[in-house]
Design a protein around this nucleic acid. Structure first.
Length: 272
DNA sequence: CCCGGAACCTGAAGGC
DNA sequence: TGCCTTCAGGTTCCGG
């Protein structure tokens, strides 16, 4: 599922393919994919525009247009942007196509149909409420401590709350908690200063490793050239059903936290 | 403000 | 073989 490392990989790899190209048209086969404005307005606002940049904020991909507007893409759980040629057959589950000059097209593939696009005048209306970017220098252990102070919710739920930290999703939250040896059900406010420092370091480590491995191809995530990432090969606990803890050999356990599958080592990550 | 649960989606995988 | 259940989870909305 696209989380920060997956979206960042897409940003890095799609930028040289599409920046400088002009969008010649948009086809949308699943209309609910376009949230704002109306589909007609969306088409008019996108068609004819030149792509002048691609940014990322949290899990949002921000495609900058010559008009000053931003084509916002969120891939949710199963979305992928595949760059191909005009004569290519659309991949299965393609729900929208963005045609570019030079005989290229971007296929928006999304089996679960959660992914969305919108056209925005400014960033604030879309990503204004997001928490800090975890890989920016201003995201320090002290900042993380302040965000968690007094919170009664499970740390697993807080880590995946986009208003607290932007970009961390279910998989990387499990990996970070394992790395920091913290039980996913510990409350945010119960973490010691040392544990917060460990967790901060772990979040950076797993995200950077994820980007280095071009994302995790659990489920349907694909890179713009259609290939898979390899980050999931290095997951210690996330989705490791029936596997053993690489540190102590204890079977990995799965529990549900806020209705999300949560994997951890019951021996290394104690409630205390 | 804080917390938890449901809804949106549908293919894949596993059990019987 | 085939049906049924479970699992996957980012975001938004709603109720307490």
């Amino acid at each position: 599922m696209p989380e920060l490392p997956e979206v960042e990989t897409i940003r890095i790899e799609i930028s040289p393919l599409i920046i400088g190209r002009r969008i010649t048209g948009v086809e949308v086969f699943w209309e609910r994919m376009v949230r704002e404005p109306s589909l007609d307005e969306f088409r008019r606002g996108v068609a004819g525009q030149r792509i002048v940049g691609v940014d990322r904020r949290g899990k949002y991909l921000l495609i900058r247009l010559g008009s000053g507007d931003t084509l916002v893409v969120h891939l949710k759980m199963s979305g992928a942007l595949i760059v191909g040629k005009s004569e290519d057959e659309p991949p299965q589950y393609t729900h929208a196509i963005i045609d570019l000059d030079g005989g290229m097209r971007i296929f928006f593939r999304d089996p679960r149909k959660f992914g969305l696009m919108r056209l925005a005048k400014d960033d604030a209306s879309v990503v204004g409420k997001l928490g800090p970017e975890p890989l920016e220098p201003d995201f320090t252990s002290e900042v993380l401590g302040k965000l968690l102070a007094g919170r009664k919710a499970p740390i697993k739920a807080l880590l995946t709350d986009q208003d607290l930290i932007a970009g961390v999703g279910n998989m990387y939250a499990d990996e970070a908690l394992y790395e920091a040896k913290i039980h996913p059900l510990r409350t945010g406010g119960s973490l010691s200063k040392g544990e917060i420092a460990r967790l901060h370091k772990a979040v950076l480590k797993v995200l950077i490793a994820g980007i280095g491995n071009k994302g995790a191809s659990i489920e349907n995530y694909l890179r713009p050239d259609g290939s898979k990432g390899t980050a999931h090969d290095e997951f210690k606990v996330a989705h490791q059903r029936k596997a053993a803890c690489p540190r102590c050999g204890t079977p990995i356990r799965r529990i549900a936290v806020r209705n999300r599958g949560t994997y951890f080592c019951p021996k290394c990550q104690k409630m205390k």
